[in-house]
């Protein structure tokens, strides 16, 4: 059973960061929209990381929009997790899945 989400976001547009938006949609699964200056080289890796992060948090029926500003792998992960937690309205995450 997937959890109920609200629209939420995390991060900034600043260099080395990522701006992540989570939007509930009327569809199953996780849709990812990525904009990145390193799209050609790292696009697939970033998408995979976003998907893996969201899946680990058992969310579904969301669109995740990521604007990557040259963020490290863990920054993307942190931003996606924060945005999802905000979307779920959960203050205390399950650290073991993060």
């Amino acid at each position: 059973m997937s959890k109920k989400l609200e629209t939420a976001h995390a991060g900034t547009l600043e260099s080395s960061d990522a701006f992540v938006r989570v939007i509930p949609v009327d569809a199953k699964g996780i849709e990812i929209e990525l904009e990145s200056s390193v799209e050609e080289i790292y696009g697939d890796a970033i998408r995979a990381r976003v998907l893996e992060t969201a899946t680990a948090m058992s969310v579904e029926g969301v669109k995740i929009i990521v604007q990557d500003k040259g963020a490290l792998d863990y920054v993307i992960k942190a931003r996606v997790q924060t945005a999802i937690l905000r979307a779920l309205g959960e203050a205390e995450p399950d650290w073991s899945v993060l």
């Binding site: 939420a8 976001h9 900034t12 547009l13 600043e14 260099s15 701006f19």
Partner: peptide
């Protein structure tokens, strides 16, 4: 730099 920081804040408020 400043433009992106400003827009980050502005989007945060709008959202």
């Amino acid at each position: 730099g400043l433009a992106l920081s400003l827009m980050s804040e502005l989007l945060k408020v709008a959202f």
